[in-house]
Design a protein around this nucleic acid. Structure first.
Lengths: 113, 113
DNA sequence: ACTATACATTGATAAACGTCAATGGGAGGA
DNA sequence: TCCTCCCATTGACGTTTATCAATGTATAGT
């Protein structure tokens, strides 16, 4: 349930076309809103930067720095994973999260001129 | 009240450092969340693409394509302007909106590797 | 002055969101 | 087989958000 949750946001992102060049259809807009919505929370941004800085991190390493409860962390990792921005791999007892750089780059490309 | 509203989001964005390279402080995270939050709505994304495609547009030209009421359009332009993503200039009866490419680029840079 | 147009603001309402306590489900270790 | 640890899910609560009708404030034209 962790691995395949990363493509709930459809691939309007993958089309690489910057926002300015497209009239942007209704469905694409909804999908992109989910992607940016995943980035629109301070806790998730800090979570993302922590995972990116660590290269890899399990949830137990995030509760402390973020100052949030375990269910809340789980909630945020799920949203980031649904947006395809991170992936989780379960090894032994721990779930290790890492960022998906291509997804970040694709999101960045949408804002380029 | 339109022109000076574009810098309510502080300049954590201007620092150019990609998300991955910074542990990202609490205040910066809050500011960036406002920036991405402005992009996290389908109506605002379509509004942005319309303005970007037109180069310049007044609110009266947006109500039709977006299918939203005038107060709703005003609400969204205010949020985008607060995030610094668009600027409004009042000429005669009309307020003309255009995108702020540097701001878009700065946001894009945050997501780069 | 009067009317019409363009936009902002206010107030209200319904939906979505962030948060946590409580609970559940696996994976080790004794 | 227990017990413990890690994480996901559920349910509930308060806050925020998107939306529009109604109203306010200019500006332009007659």
């Amino acid at each position: 349930m962790v691995q395949q949750s990363q493509l709930l946001v459809s691939d309007a992102v993958a089309c690489c076309a910057p926002l300015a060049s497209a009239p942007l259809g209704d469905d694409d807009a909804r999908d992109l809103a989910l992607l940016f919505g995943a980035l629109a929370d301070p806790v998730r941004l800090r979570l993302l930067s922590l995972v990116a800085a660590s290269g890899e991190a399990c949830s137990c390493n995030l509760e402390g720095p973020l100052g949030k409860s375990q269910p809340t962390i789980s909630h945020h990792t799920r949203i980031l994973a649904s947006a395809g921005l991170i992936t989780g791999e379960k090894r032994g007892k721990w779930t290790y999260w890492k960022v998906v750089p291509e997804r970040m780059a694709a999101a960045a490309r949408l804002l380029g001129t």
